[in-house]
């Protein structure tokens, strides 16, 4: 079982307390009425599927209930770092997020 550090509870918690919430850091078009169809399609549906580090949203649904951001390696399933929603992406050191 993965141990994931919740940035709000400030402790490492078992994976079963969490839900995956899709790709993180998606930027909504600033003026939707001026956005082209292609831009909307891009925002709504198109997602990266990288092999390696991937920024994701996770929710501590069976804990504090908060969404937060997480950098996870899709090859090793290693949680590299977690940080609070709305905060800048932290410098990645050698921490494992747990």
């Amino acid at each position: 079982m993965l141990l994931i550090r919740c940035p709000y509870c400030e402790t490492a918690r078992p994976e079963v307390e969490f839900r995956h919430g899709g790709e993180a850091l998606m930027e909504r078009p600033r003026d939707p009425s001026r956005a082209s169809d292609a831009e909307w399609i891009d925002y709504l549906y198109m997602r990266r599927n990288p092999k390696g580090p991937h920024a994701e949203r996770w929710r501590h649904v069976h804990g504090c209930g908060r969404f937060f951001n997480c950098l996870r390696d899709t090859v090793s399933d290693r949680i590299v770092v977690t940080w609070r929603a709305g905060e800048p992406v932290p410098e990645v050191t050698d921490g494992d997020g747990a």
């Binding site: 079982m1 402790t11 078992p14 079963v16 307390e17 069976h62 804990g63 504090c64 209930g65």
Partner: peptide
């Protein structure tokens, strides 16, 4: 409950929602 309940990480008056 797959949570570390040792007194060091979950002392008296620690509380949380969990599974």
């Amino acid at each position: 409950i797959p949570l570390d309940l040792s007194p060091k990480t979950f002392p008296v008056d620690a509380c949380t929602r969990t599974i």
